[in-house]
Write a protein that binds this DNA or RNA. Sequence first.
DNA 1: GCGACAG
DNA 2: ATCTTGTCGC
Length: 239
Amino acid sequence: MVITPEVNYDQLTIGEATLIQQQLRSHLKLEPYQKEPKTIAGADISLALYSETVYAGLVVLSYPDLQPIAFSLVKSSTIFPYVPGYLAFREIPAILKAYEQIPVKPDLIMFDGNGILHARRMGIASHFGVLTGAVTMGCAKKKLAGQYTEPGTMKGEYTPVTDKGEVIGYALRTKDNVKPVFISPGHQMTLEDSLTLALKCTGKHRLPEPTRRAHEYVNRFRTGELTEGYHEINTWNLF
DNA sequence: GCGACAG
DNA sequence: ATCTTGTCGC
């Protein structure tokens, strides 16, 4: 099911936003994603301090190589404030524009934020997934909701994050002796799928390659090094 | 009322 | 998130 955003997020009150999240939640699907993805995209936005301007983008990586092969950048604006639990209403409009200008959609999208690891199980990754029908997952750098115990200090160790008696994600150590990241499924995958994919997308850094690259590209866009639009990266020198 | 609180 | 310098560890 594909839901077309008919409302202007900038005009919403928190109460109205909450109702939308509850509505979207009824369309959430967390069924197994058994295929091996061919491409995985990372999505993120970069902001200029004290500005309503947002620099949004997605970077498409090959899988399992995790090499950037294309990116889509869009400059937009938002007045919806950052409110914990409502990040989607601030970032999704811009990310949606960047997603729409990608000719061949990635098999999966990893967001800098949460999926169901959210009080109403509707973090930005789940919100975007239900809205577009895309397969999504979340990877946040800090805990938003639930409780957990610190996982072991070695890469690959993890502990569940629970809320109201259910597992809503995992605290995953993606590198030895660094703070864990918080992984959760967004849409069209299970908790286990999100954990497995996060580890397979992790290399030498704390953040998995998709979101790490997305963060890098939107920042290069904001500083003027990259331009708006859809771009494919030359890969001839890799053969 | 108090503490928590993605980006 | 963004603004910033040095500092610590692998």
